[in-house]
């Protein structure tokens, strides 16, 4: 596993994308390595979701290259992509009441021929994951009746059943209450540690980046804004008062606390918003 440690799983080279004439981003270069958390931060509407869609192949890059597991192409097929990345949506529209089991089995799509459906081994995988999460009792429940937190966990389980090295999440904890937010983060941290999963996430909460760093997981932060993406290194280096002022126009304090038995804990505390003009200097 150690040799794999620094293997680049996803790489974007000189990537650019626009909706018609409206450019979303250009000249994007980024690398995501195995076992790390790649945290994409940026204000509303800066194009985080679009960047993620480009990684997933929902949109095709205008120029530049996307390398998945060393395979560099302008376009990857959905099946190919789905064996590298599993996606946990920000917002899931529920149209039909499937059972939780049926929903989980959808994660087996990339391994299921067009005429077939998931079989016994797939069902066993689903059962195992449910057991791992301690949610076996949900198996035959109607997933449209689950709570927000349970739904998000089911979506994460579906991504795990997809058995990909990378999980992509867009706002993993939106709509979740305090406890469920922490539960999802804990689950993710455990999965990254135990299964060497790489997590790509777009989030509104810089503290999520600190959460994983505090948990001892390698984290890289990238800020998105002004049509570009700026890889900025570890949260301790990236999430400075200057950067937060520049990208979010807010005044913040970064608190560091050493807790007995838990090591050093860092958190950002927002103080107040700044005028747009005071760029760069807090």
């Amino acid at each position: 596993m150690a040799a794999d440690q620094n293997q680049t799983l996803i790489e974007m080279k000189n990537a650019a994308f626009s909706f018609g004439r409206i450019p979303v981003f250009r000249q994007v270069n980024l690398k995501i390595a195995r076992g790390e958390v790649f945290c994409l931060l940026g204000p509303n509407g800066c194009g985080k979701t679009t960047l993620i869609d480009c990684m997933l192949g929902i949109h095709t890059l205008d120029t530049g290259r996307l390398c998945l597991m060393g395979q560099s192409r302008t376009r990857h097929s959905p099946g190919e992509t789905a064996r590298v990345m599993a996606y946990v949506p920000q917002k899931h529209d529920r149209h039909f009441s499937f059972s939780v089991l049926d929903l989980l089995l959808l994660g087996r799509t990339p391994y299921t021929a067009f005429y077939a459906s998931p079989g016994k081994p797939d069902i066993e995988k689903a059962e195992k994951i449910l057991e791992l999460f301690g949610l076996s009792h949900l198996m035959h429940r109607d997933y449209t009746r689950l709570s927000g937190g349970e739904t998000q966990l089911v979506m994460i389980m579906r991504a795990l059943i997809q058995e990909t090295p990378v999980i992509v999440m867009d706002e993993p904890t939106s709509h979740l209450d305090f406890r469920h937010e922490l539960m999802v983060l804990e689950t993710l941290a455990r999965l990254i540690r135990e299964r060497q999963i790489t997590l790509v996430m777009a989030t509104h909460f810089p503290n999520h980046a600190f959460y994983f760093e505090n948990a001892g997981i390698p984290v890289n932060v990238a800020f998105m804004g002004n049509q570009s993406v700026k890889p900025s290194g570890t949260p301790s280096r990236a999430l400075t008062q200057e950067n937060l002022a520049r990208f979010y126009h807010i005044e913040t304090v970064v608190m560091t606390q050493t807790l007995p038995g838990k090591g050093r804990i860092r958190q950002i505390i927002p103080i107040k918003t700044l005028d747009r003009e005071t760029k760069g200097t807090p």
């Binding site: 869609d53 997933l56 192949g57 929902i58 097929s77 959905p78 099946g79 992509t81 789905a82 064996r83 990345m85 599993a86 996606y87 949506p89 899931h92 529209d93 149209h95 039909f96 499937f98 049926d102 089995l105 959808l106 994660g107 799509t109 990339p110 299921t112 067009f114 005429y115 077939a116 459906s117 998931p118 997809q162 992509v168």
Partner: peptide, 24 residues
């Protein structure tokens, strides 16, 4: 009848169906 299971995947919406590996 042959493709019926894939209707479940498509019922998730285009984005999810795509990310689950389907050519929508």
């Amino acid at each position: 009848m042959i493709i019926r299971w894939r209707l479940n995947v498509l019922a998730m919406g285009d984005r999810e169906a795509h990310s689950l590996g389907l050519n929508v």
